[in-house]
Amino acid sequence: MSTTASDLYLARRNAYAEFLSAADSEASVCWRKADGQYGGPEETTAAQDAAYTVTRDRYNQILVEPVGPDKEAQALIEQIRLLGRATKEEQDWISFKKAREVFVDAARVCLKDTLDG
């Protein structure tokens, strides 16, 4: 593997992993919100805004490249948005986990293609 391919692989791998971590963190905020764990509306909004900002920034790293799992990342973000609007009983964690799996699978394919390319 050339240095350029190795650098590209590592950059993509890190971007995908950072996006997954951000998505997981934002989903956790959605769960804590629905569970009533925040001290009030201001604390809830601050937690949501902070998590959203990180997820959006990590998604933008994926979006700007013309290849990669950007559609799968967008689908995962949509699942997070649904979690954030739902009550604890309405939250669909199965759909979130499925969208997460789809993103991971697409990221793995992209990373493999980077190595093979």
Rank of each mutant, 00 (worst) to 15 (best):
M1W: 15
S2K: 14
T3R: 13
T3D: 13
T3Q: 15
T4H: 13
T4C: 06
A5N: 15
S6Q: 14
D7R: 15
L8R: 15
L10D: 14
L10G: 03
R12C: 06
R13N: 10
A15Q: 14
A15G: 07
A15C: 06
L20C: 05
S21Y: 12
A22I: 00
A22M: 04
A23L: 00
S25R: 08
A27G: 06
A27L: 02
W31N: 07
R32I: 06
K33Q: 15
A34L: 00
D35P: 00
Q37L: 14
P41K: 13
E42T: 03
E42V: 06
T44C: 09
T45V: 10
T45S: 12
A47H: 03
A50Q: 10
V54L: 05
T55F: 05
T55N: 02
R58E: 14
Q61K: 12
I62L: 11
L63S: 12
V64P: 03
V64Y: 14
P66N: 00
G68Q: 05
P69W: 01
P69A: 02
D70G: 06
K71F: 09
Q74A: 15
Q74G: 09
L76A: 01
E78G: 05
Q79T: 07
Q79E: 13
L83P: 01
E89Y: 10
E90Q: 14
E90M: 00
E90P: 08
Q91A: 02
W93D: 09
S95C: 01
K98L: 02
K98Y: 13
A99Q: 01
V102S: 08
F103M: 00
D105F: 05
D105V: 11
R108A: 07
V109A: 14
C110D: 14
L111H: 02
L111R: 04
K112E: 13
K112Q: 10
T114C: 08
D116V: 05
